[in-house]
């Protein structure tokens, strides 16, 4: 969504009228779902967190600075929502990836059933690795690799100084690498 269109929609939302909120929800539900899936690990919990985060964002819209992009602010709400859900349900990251709900992106035209199978197996192992690392590691990896955010945006979402993002990413990647090692997937 174009930044100026987004700003205009936010302005209209603030003036009242949930119908102007719909394009924003539709624009951010994809990236939001990736983040929620990365943090919650299964579709149902991710949907619950996403829905609740959109409602909370709407309720807090008066406090949102309309001159800033909506994405990082919304991801911050969503991240807190995921954490609250995990805490309140006393649940941990619950893996639900060994089915058709996740898939590896086709790696180009040279796709074959065998290659697809290998890709799926690799993706599955990757998710098992993500399951083993802490929530803090997982969320920064999701923000960087799945959402494709810049360091400054990650810092804003996580509420940490810009300078610590690289260090947090290093520890997260290191933890994932070690977890994959334990699963027999060597990146060494």
């Amino acid at each position: 969504m174009q930044p100026e269109v987004e700003r205009e929609l936010i302005r209209k939302c603030k003036a009242g009228g949930p119908r102007f909120y719909e394009p924003i929800v539709r624009a951010y539900e994809g990236p939001g779902m990736r983040l929620a899936m990365g943090m919650m690990g299964n579709v149902e919990d991710a949907h619950d967190a996403l829905q609740e985060a959109f409602v909370k964002a709407w309720q807090s819209l008066d406090r949102f600075d309309g001159g800033r992009p909506f994405g990082p602010w919304f991801f911050q709400i969503l991240r807190n929502q995921c954490r609250d859900l995990l805490r309140s349900r006393q649940a941990r990251f619950k893996l639900e990836t060994v089915d058709e709900r996740l898939e590896a992106r086709p790696a180009g035209l040279a796709s074959s059933p065998e290659r697809d199978r290998e890709k799926r197996a690799a993706t599955e192992m990757l998710w098992k690795g993500l399951e083993r690392i802490g929530a803090e590691h997982r969320e920064i990896l999701v923000l960087k690799e799945l959402e494709g955010l810049r360091y400054s945006e990650i810092a804003e979402v996580l509420g940490i100084p810009d300078g610590t993002v690289a260090s947090r990413l290093y520890h997260a990647r290191r933890a994932l690498r070690d977890a994959l090692d334990e699963l027999g997937v060597s990146y060494a």
Binding site: G30, M33, R34, M37, V43, A46, E100, R101, L102, E103, A104, R105, A107, K119, T123, L126, W127, L141, E145, L146, G148
Partner: peptide, 9 residues
């Protein structure tokens, strides 16, 4: 990691 997609979900 970047190869993971959530399209079906």
């Amino acid at each position: 990691l970047q190869g993971i997609s959530f399209a079906p979900a």
